[in-house]
């Protein structure tokens, strides 16, 4: 096992780097999109609610792999060429954003209508009330579930392997099938993934206890 690690060190590191990069980009965009659609869903206009609702239902109920494949294979036929890395990252961001929207929305809802009414009757506008009263309270509630979403996102980034995205899983496949040491290679890949997800997961548990 040690020989595989040293012999294919650069492959593993490239894959590890790409997995981190893809996860970070996808996290950033999925957070923005997720919060945006959550706000749209709790806002008064009916049309916004409908749009957010459709968006969330679509991306929650279609497998990530299918979404990614659509970006990788179909978009280039009509529009621009999308590399595997980009397609995977876009798919990951959209997919995760739907779950984040759900999480944030339930966080906002759990703050309670009374808070909003109180803020509005104190002369705040809707936006101000959201920004200064509701969201700060909601954030505290949604941080642990959001952390779990991030861990899921890192794990899900392995779909890049299907679209030649040069992530850890893809590189692992290549090492496995050129060294013929399948199980050993996947153990190494697993250790790399755990290096990312396990600390995050323990930190989240710690945070959850403290916030609760």
């Amino acid at each position: 096992m040690w020989q595989i690690l040293t012999g294919y060190w650069s492959e593993f590191i490239t894959g590890f780097g790409n997995t981190i990069l893809c996860s970070l980009i996808a996290m950033f965009f999925s957070l923005i999109l997720g919060v945006f659609f959550a706000l749209l869903e709790v806002a008064p206009p009916k049309i916004g609610r409908a749009i957010a609702h459709i968006y969330i239902e679509i991306f929650c109920n279609i497998p990530l792999l299918v979404i990614t494949m659509i970006f990788y294979l179909i978009i280039p036929q009509f529009w621009v060429k999308v590399s595997g890395f980009t397609a995977g990252t876009i798919g990951l961001a959209l997919y995760t954003s739907a779950f984040i929207a759900e999480t944030v929305r339930s966080g906002i809802n759990s703050v309670g209508d009374g808070q909003m009414e109180g803020a509005l009757s104190n002369g705040m506008t809707y936006v101000q009330a959201m920004r200064y009263v509701i969201l700060p309270q909601a954030i505290r509630i949604v941080i642990p579930p959001l952390g779990n979403q991030m861990i899921t996102l890192i794990k899900n980034s392995s779909v890049l392997a299907f679209v030649a995205g040069f992530d850890l899983m893809y590189q692992g496949d290549i090492v496995a099938f050129s060294s013929f040491q399948t199980i050993e290679t996947y153990v190494i890949v697993g250790v790399f993934y755990l290096g990312l997800t396990l600390p995050l997961s323990y930190y989240m548990r710690h945070l959850e206890k403290r916030l609760a």
Binding site: P76, Q77, S83, A164, D173
Partner: peptide
């Protein structure tokens, strides 16, 4: 070189201009 799981995927990628 970009590598895929099977020939169907590889050919689809060729068609998509990858």
């Amino acid at each position: 070189v970009l590598e895929y799981g099977d020939y169907g995927q590889a050919f689809s990628a060729l068609k998509a201009g990858q």
